[in-house]
């Protein structure tokens, strides 16, 4: 009984939000169609080397990756502006809130619909990118490149949800459509940049050391994501290159390595994330980003309560 009642109550607001968003449903359906088409093209092209479709597939894969990278910004802007702030700006929220929908339920319906759309969009991009990456062997996406990383795992989906959360909060604080869109896109981008900066620390890196090798990078595979490198002493202390690249050093030593050796360095080292760190990194990042998103949503509901009770 109570289950049926609450189902009816949830339905009304959600259906209202969907009906309000009719204008974007058609373009979204077209984009979805294009995405599925792209996935089909990637799948059909397969290993067929040298065909013109092959080039198309390659660039489509690349565009997909960039789209996935920018998707959270776009979602943040759309949620902040047209979805939430427009109602606050035009005053129609007063209609919704006095027609039996509490402010919290109204915001929850909006954020819920947006979250559903965000997950659907990023999963679609993920499928298209994965297909394109799998079939086009000539395309070498480094797994840790920002756009490929965003398009190929859970972190991208979490970032899309972060866009929803940041958009929701921004709309409540800015309350005007266009400024809210700009602020939300910038804020989402800033958070993503910050997450990108700390990404390498989200999982312990592996250290590769090479002693007395002419090949500096020996031991660092092409699939490795090298996050730092330098030299270590016999006791294992890390030395930085201070002064060894200066003109003075060049007068004394034949090359910077000799300079470092004179300072006691015996080995080269590289901190790397091997390809096997992909999923641990993706999962930890998704967790961090989802926690940020949850905190932001909580803050949004607090702001709503504080202003409107």
């Amino acid at each position: 009984m109570s289950g049926t009642l609450s189902a009816v109550r949830v339905q009304g607001p959600t259906r209202l939000v969907l009906r309000q968003s009719r204008a974007v449903v058609l373009p979204a359906a077209v984009l979805l169609g294009l995405g599925v088409l792209a996935a089909g093209v990637m799948y059909l092209v397969g290993a067929d080397d040298g065909s013109p479709l092959r080039t198309t597939s390659r660039s489509l894969t690349e565009y997909t990756a960039y789209t996935a990278l920018l998707l959270p910004l776009l979602i943040g802007a759309l949620v902040a502006g047209p979805l939430v702030a427009r109602e606050l700006e035009s005053g129609t929220y007063r209609l919704a809130w006095t027609q039996g929908m509490s402010p919290a339920r109204w915001l929850a319906a909006k954020a819920g619909v947006a979250a559903g759309a965000a997950v659907a969009a990023s999963v679609l991009l993920l499928v298209v990118f994965r297909l394109g990456q799998g079939t086009a062997e000539g395309v070498h996406f480094q797994w840790h490149q920002a756009h490929a990383y965003a398009a190929s795992g859970t972190a991208g989906i979490a970032c899309a949800l972060l866009g929803v959360a940041v958009g929701t909060l921004t709309a409540l604080l800015v309350r005007r459509t266009l400024p809210a869109m700009g602020v939300a896109a910038v804020a989402t981008g800033a958070v993503m940049l910050a997450v990108g900066q700390v990404r390498q620390y989200l999982w312990p890196a592996m250290t590769v050391t090479v002693r007395e090798s002419p090949e500096l990078r020996a031991g660092v595979l092409p699939s490795h994501w090298e996050t730092s490198s330098g030299m270590v002493t016999d006791s294992g202390r890390r030395l930085d290159w201070e002064g060894c690249w200066s003109r003075q050093a060049a007068e004394t030593y034949s090359d910077p390595n000799a300079c470092m050796t004179a300072r006691g360095a015996v080995e080269h080292f590289s901190d790397v994330h091997p390809a096997s760190h992909f999923w641990p990194l993706q999962l930890v990042e998704a967790g961090v980003v989802l926690a940020l998103a949850a905190g932001t949503v909580w803050l949004a509901f607090r702001v709503l309560r504080r202003l409107h009770g």
Binding site: G91, T92, T98, G100, S102
Partner: peptide, 16 residues
């Protein structure tokens, strides 16, 4: 909320 109705000055309605 369920028991009251409010007509705001600008008569907000969804234009679409």
């Amino acid at each position: 909320r369920q028991q009251l109705a409010f007509l705001a000055q600008e008569k907000p309605l969804y234009p679409q």
